[in-house]
């Protein structure tokens, strides 16, 4: 899990062009979309693409998306629970 969280943070920084940030700057427990990183609706869509591209996982509804993209932790949990092994 720890490894996945670290990897996710790096992927998020790359996908969202958060060039001035380092993985350590992202709190995996903190909400991604409230103040913190200053993310917006395009970023949310971009994270949806990231989950599909890197993990083959689709988000089906907007409500589901809100829960999954809440924080790095919630994204990691979603990946772990749905990963095809």
């Amino acid at each position: 899990m720890e490894q996945l969280i670290q990897k996710l943070k790096e992927e998020i920084i790359e996908a969202l062009n958060l060039s001035e940030m380092k993985p350590a700057d992202i709190d995996e427990k903190a909400p991604l979309f409230v103040d913190g990183l200053g993310l917006d609706s395009i970023d949310a869509l971009e994270l949806t693409v990231l989950l599909e591209k890197k993990y083959g996982l689709k988000i089906n509804t907007a409500e589901e998306g809100k829960k999954i993209l809440h924080s790095v932790n919630s994204m990691a949990e979603f990946i772990t629970a749905n990963k095809k092994s």
């Binding site: 969202l16 062009n17 971009e46 693409v49 599909e52 591209k53």
Partner: peptide, 9 residues
């Protein structure tokens, strides 16, 4: 096939 909304915009 992964069109990116951040690029498309």
């Amino acid at each position: 096939y992964f069109p990116s909304p951040a690029v498309f915009v």
